[in-house]
Design a protein around this nucleic acid. Structure first.
Lengths: 228, 228
DNA sequence: ATAAGTATGTTGTTTTTACAACAAAAATAA
DNA sequence: TTATTTTTGTTGTAAAAACAACATACTTAT
């Protein structure tokens, strides 16, 4: 665990908590780490989970699969983020989604119930942890709502542009890299991959954007119509 | 406020808190109530909000509108539910959605920051409120994820059936009432209303369901194919 | 370097959707 | 009640998406 204190001291769960205290908290929370390979399942749908995961390295996709193997990506979490906390304190009998490593990934599992229930020796960090959890839960909430902004669009073209615009805004730059490959992006936007690729090509041919692999560049509109 | 203690003592925020204490908490949280008419805006996109709302009566839609007036419903909250808490503790400069009363609605606004920051006189209820907030945030999270299950489907037909199946499951009955009218349901599932009405009629003609206004009944499959 | 595997782009066809326009039914107001 | 407004259902058409099949580019392993 030691070698990850650099990551740990920066994660939202340990905000405002002294680096030196983190190790003791980890044992208090029954923290255990585990490494997963690309495409390996961390949790499968229908499982019952009681832990939350913190990503020390790599990234995971929260997915929903149907009988025919169609995969939909609900959300993607990368290094430092926490996932699964909402399920582990819900009355749901089983997980409505699966969580899969999207690359080689190191997860730190913690006993979430121990965060949200006051520990017998009421350790001093507890209230800090809870404060931080309130923020993490709210942020995960907002992330889902912001994703909806892309999904509500009726055409593939609009979904792509909505997604790409957000990425550009996030880094405050017309040129940026996305952390999805084409199949993942299609699964994230809930459209067909080939239809999406086709649409991206059309956008390029129309001079709206350019791309090379996962690197995109959005161009300004030449004559934007006034909106009244 | 008094006349609503019946509602208040049942809401998640005041779980495990004595009815007699609720009134004093309300003043501690600068609680103010306000009544809205159908279609009236509670918050408009681009506003900055610092409060959370609790629905004492009626219901609200959290919506996203585009320049052409197309409305998408992100989520619907009804009596007893809390909304807006995630925004009021986020660093977002402005609200990414609007909140609109979907009928005559009474909202109790509270200063959310006062819940999540320890009050100077560290009143005894604070930790209870925070515990309850952790649950509310997690539940709102799960609600969004469960909605995704309908939205990820590629056809209007599948979206409708996914939504209706969940409603049936929720009340554990093939026959049930939904709390959306047709336009709202279309806006919630992100499809065209007339196309959706058409699809619902087809489902009826095929003997898959029946309906009368907002009352639906799902029929069992006669010869379900085995899934291997 | 070569081969094998994976990811991405392209094209044509079929299915589905959005859109528009209108009819019918239901709810509301006068 | 009747008139008016709103909601819901229906139909046809144009646009878009899914789907399938394949070509090309890129990666990875040997």
């Amino acid at each position: 665990m030691k070698e990850y204190t650099d990551v740990l001291k920066k994660i939202p769960l340990f905000r405002n908590i002294d680096e030196k205290d983190i190790v003791s908290i980890l044992s208090c929370l029954s923290a255990k780490e585990k490494i997963y390979n690309k495409e390996e399942y961390i949790w499968s749908e229908e499982n019952k989970v009681s832990e939350a995961g913190i990503i020390l390295a790599g990234s995971v996709n929260v997915i929903k699969e149907d009988y025919w193997g169609n995969r939909a990506i609900i959300s993607k979490f990368s290094s430092g983020k926490m996932f699964g906390e909402a399920f582990s304190c819900s009355k749901l009998a089983k997980l409505p989604v699966s969580v899969v490593a999207s690359e080689k990934t190191k997860i730190l599992f913690i006993n979430y119930k121990k965060i949200i229930t006051v520990c017998p020796n009421s350790c001093a960090f507890h209230s800090k942890l809870i404060d931080n959890m309130l923020k993490i839960l709210a942020d995960n909430n907002i992330m889902l709502i912001q994703k909806m902004e892309h999904i509500v669009k009726r055409t593939t073209r609009e979904k792509i542009l909505s997604f790409l615009s957000e990425q550009a805004k996030k880094v405050n730059n017309n040129s940026f890299k996305i952390n999805f490959n084409r199949q993942e992006l299609a699964d994230y936007l809930y459209v067909d991959r080939s239809a999406m690729s086709n649409e991206i090509s059309k956008l390029r041919n129309e001079g709206i954007l350019s791309f090379k692999k996962n690197h995109f560049k959005l161009f300004e509109k030449k004559n934007p119509k006034t909106i009244h």
